[in-house]
C-alpha cells in the first residue's frame, strides 16, 4: 500500500526577478512499512519537502498524496487534523514542552481536540515500554539526557498511530551512542509496529538504518539506493552516492540497488 505519493512537486519562493526554486518537478513514493531516508546536499530542498508533506508549506505546483489524501485541497483546520491524526513528528531539537511531564508531552497531541481516546493510558504505557521510558514518565524534559528526550519525541510521534512519521535530522543533536540507540529504537518501531518512517538526514551512518534512501539535488530527484544486504554494505553505497552527488555526477535511475 502506498503511503506517500509525491508527483511533479515544485516549490518556488520569491517572485519576479528574485525567484528561488526549492523543489523542481520532484516525484517519488513511499510504501507502507518502509523506512525511507531523504538525503542531499545543503539547499537541495529536503526541509522544503518535509514542510510540504507536513502542510506547513504549500507547493507551487504538483501534488502530494499521503494515506490516500491529497494535501493540496486542505483547509487550515483540515491540515491541522491531518497533522494530528496522520503524521508524527521527530525534530532535531526535540521540541518538547518544558513545562509538561514526559507523560503529558507524549499524550499532548491526543488532547488537542476532544474526545480523548479511551485507551490513552494503555497507549502511553505501550509506547513508553517500547521506547524504554517507563521510569521517566513523571520527569520533565530538562531532567532527561538528550537521547532520552528524543525517545520521548519518538513516543509522542507514535502515540496517535499515524500513517507516517516525519523525522527531521533526529540524531543531529545527539552524540554517536545516543544516536545509535535512537536509531535502533526507530528500527524496532519500524519492524515491530510496521510504522512508515520518512527521515531527512545528511549523515550516512544515520541513513544506513533505513531501507531505502532517496537522494535529491537542486530540488529534483537525483537517485535512490535500496538496502539489500548488510548495513555496512548499504553504508558504503550511501557514501558512494554522496560522493557522486557532491562531485556533480549525473542523475541515476530509481533502479540502483545493492
Amino acid at each position: 500500500m502506498r503511503v506517500v505519493d509525491v508527483a511533479h512537486l515544485t516549490k518556488i519562493y520569491g517572485h519576479r526577478l528574485n525567484r528561488v526554486t526549492a523543489l523542481n518537478d520532484l516525484s517519488f513514493h513511499i510504501d507502507a512499512g518502509e523506512f525511507v531516508g531523504i538525503m542531499g546536499p545543503s539547499g537541495a530542498g529536503k526541509s522544503t519537502l518535509l514542510n510540504t508533506i507536513a502542510t506547513i508549506d504549500t507547493p507551487t505546483s504538483g501534488e502530494v498524496i499521503v494515506a490516500g489524501q491529497s494535501l493540496s485541497q486542505f483547509s487550515e483546520s483540515e491540515s491541522a487534523r491531518y497533522r494530528r491524526e496522520q503524521l508524527g513528528f521527530i525534530f532535531q531539537e526535540f521540541n518538547l514542552i518544558p513545562d509538561l511531564t514526559v507523560a503529558d508531552n507524549i499524550t499532548l497531541p491526543l488532547t488537542f481536540v476532544p474526545p480523548v481516546p479511551d485507551d490513552l493510558d494503555a497507549r502511553l504505557a505501550r509506547f513508553a515500554h517500547l521506547l524504554g521510558l517507563e521510569s521517566m514518565l513523571t520527569r520533565y524534559p530538562e531532567q532527561l539526557s538528550l537521547g532520552q528526550r528524543q525517545r520521548v519525541a519518538a513516543a509522542r510521534a507514535m502515540i496517535s498511530n499515524p500513517a507516517l512519521i516525519l523525522a527531521d535530522e533526529p540524531t543531529g543533536s545527539l552524540d554517536s551512542m545516543a544516536a545509535t540507540e535512537l536509531l535502533q529504537y526507530l528500527t524496532k518501531l519500524n519492524l515491530e509496529e510496521d510504522v512508515t518512517i520518512m527521515m531527512v538526514t545528511h549523515d550516512a551512518f544515520t541513513a544506513s538504518f533505513c531501507n531505502r534512501i532517496i537522494f535529491i539535488r537542486d530540488g529534483s530527484y537525483f537517485a535512490e539506493v535500496t538496502r539489500r544486504g548488510p548495513r555496512q554494505q548499504f553504508f558504503d553505497s550511501i557514501i558512494d552516492m554522496e560522493a557522486t552527488i557532491n562531485g556533480g555526477g549525473k542523475r541515476r535511475g530509481p533502479s540502483d540497488t545493492l
Binding site: 507536513a54 506547513i56 487550515e76 483546520s77 491541522a80 487534523r81 491531518y82 497533522r83 494530528r84 491524526e85 503524521l87 513528528f89 525534530f91 521540541n95 514542552i97 499532548l108 497531541p109 488537542f112 481536540v113 509522542r156
Partner: peptide, 16 residues
C-alpha cells in the same frame, strides 16, 4: 514563539 510553532506542527487547530 517556538513552543507555539511546535504545538501547531503537532496538529493543534488554529481555534485551539
Amino acid at each position: 514563539r517556538q513552543s507555539r510553532q511546535i504545538i501547531r506542527a503537532l496538529g493543534m487547530p488554529t481555534r485551539g
